[in-house]
Amino acid sequence: MTIVLASLVAIGVIAFILSVRAKDLPQPEPVSPFHHLDERKAAIYENLRDLQFEYRVGKLSDQDYQQTKLDLQRELAAVMAEIDRVKAEIAAGKIPAPAPAPELVKTAAARAPAKFICPSCKAEFAQPLKFCGECGKPMKAAQA
């Protein structure tokens, strides 16, 4: 009895671990190449908002407020310039356009070569996309 139970548990666990099929591979959420820059931008906006609030409630002197605001705006501009630079490089093809993790593209592409069609606007794509590049609607159904 014990031996049977023990074997069942062992076999069950090992089978569960080893039987990974292609469709069990997770579809990663798309990661924008601007992700960390956007985060940075959002953080600076947030800092600006805090600064404004602290100034309004009277925690800051005028001079501190103006100076810090200028600093933050400068940083914001620098981040925006960086975003534009990356955009330009993508447009010029210097760095590849973002795609889901390469290994997954390979396996998915092997199953259904070439065509990914948006269910809403019928646009065609060579890569699996989470959202349609034309109309922006979710494209998950099209891949399955």
Binding site: P30, P33, A42, R49, P98, A99, Q127
Partner: peptide, 22 residues
């Protein structure tokens, strides 16, 4: 969330506004 910050848009990543919660 008081404000949504515009995300940089790229083809294939068209989630236009992502709520940023700090």
């Amino acid at each position: 969330v008081k404000r949504e910050y515009a995300r940089t848009q790229v083809v294939g990543f068209t989630r236009k506004h992502v709520p940023v919660e700090k």
